[in-house]
Amino acid sequence: MSAGAPERLVAVPVRHYGRWVSAVAVLAGLAAVVYAFSQAEIDYGTTGEFFTADNIVRGAGRTLLISVLAQAIGIALGVVFAVMRLSKNPVTSTVSWCYIWLFRGTPVLVQLLIWYNLALVFPTMFGHPTSDLMTPFVAALLGLGINEGAYMAEIVRAGIASVDEGQTEASQALGMTQGQTLRRVVLPQAMRVIIPPTGNEFINMLKTSSLAYTIQYGELLLSAVSVYTRNLQVIELLFTVSLWYLVLTSVFSIGQYYLERRFARGALRDLPATPLSRVLANLRGGPRI
C-alpha cells in the first residue's frame, strides 16, 4: 500500500466566456443608470436632510404602527377564519369561504375608500356621527387588517393542514380537547409553515400601508407628499420615503430570519449557526462553523 497524499489532478479549467460577456453588459447598464441619475437635477442633499426631519420620522412611525396593528388584526382574523374554514359545520366553513372570496377578490385600495366613506351611507353608528368614529386611522386599520385576514386565513389553513394527522390523534388519545389540541399541538407545529409567508405578508403590509395616504392617514408617504407640495422637491422626497421603506423592510427581514429559526425547533437536530454567531465564533478564533 502506498501512503501519503494522492497526487493532485491538474487540468485546464473550462472558460466561461459567456459569463464574462453578460457581467460586462450588466455592469455597463448599471453604470449608465447611475450616471443618468447623478446628472439629473436631483438635490440629494435634500433627500438626506429630510430623512431625519420630524414630520417624516413621525410618518415612518405611523407606517410602522398601522402595519403592526393591521397585521395583528389580520393574524387574529386569519386564525379564526382558518379554523372556521376547516370546521365540520357547513355554515361556519361557508361563511369563511365567502369572507376570503370577498376580501381577496377586491382591491385593497377600493376597500380602504369604502371604509373611509362609510359615513355617506351610515350617517351615525352606535349613536355617534360616523365621521367621528371612522377617522383615517380607524378606516386604514380596518381596511388593511380585514383585507389581510383573508390572506392570513389561507396561510394559516395551509399551516394547519401541514401538521401530520397522527399529532391530532395522539393529542386526543391523551384526553386533550379539540381546543387544547389546536393551541398546544397543532398551531405550534403549523407555525413553521405559517411564519415565512407571514413575514412576507408583513413586509408587504409595510409597503401596502402607503395606500392609506389616499384616505388622509398621515403615514410616511402622506408626510412626504405634504412636504413636496410646498417645496416642490418631489423626487427628492419620494427618494427619502423609499429609503425609509428600505430600512423598515430590511430590519424586518432580519427579524424574520431569527423568528423562522426559532420555530424550526424540533424539526432539525441542530439549529444552523446564525450569521452573527458565525462571525463572533470566527472573531474569537474558535472552530470555524
Partner: peptide
C-alpha cells in the same frame, strides 16, 4: 380517552416539545 393510553406505530410524539 384520558383513562385509556394509546401507543402508535409511528410514535406521534410532539416534535416541538
Amino acid at each position: 380517552r384520558s383513562e385509556i393510553g394509546m401507543v402508535f406505530q409511528r410514535f406521534n410524539l410532539f416534535p416541538h416539545m
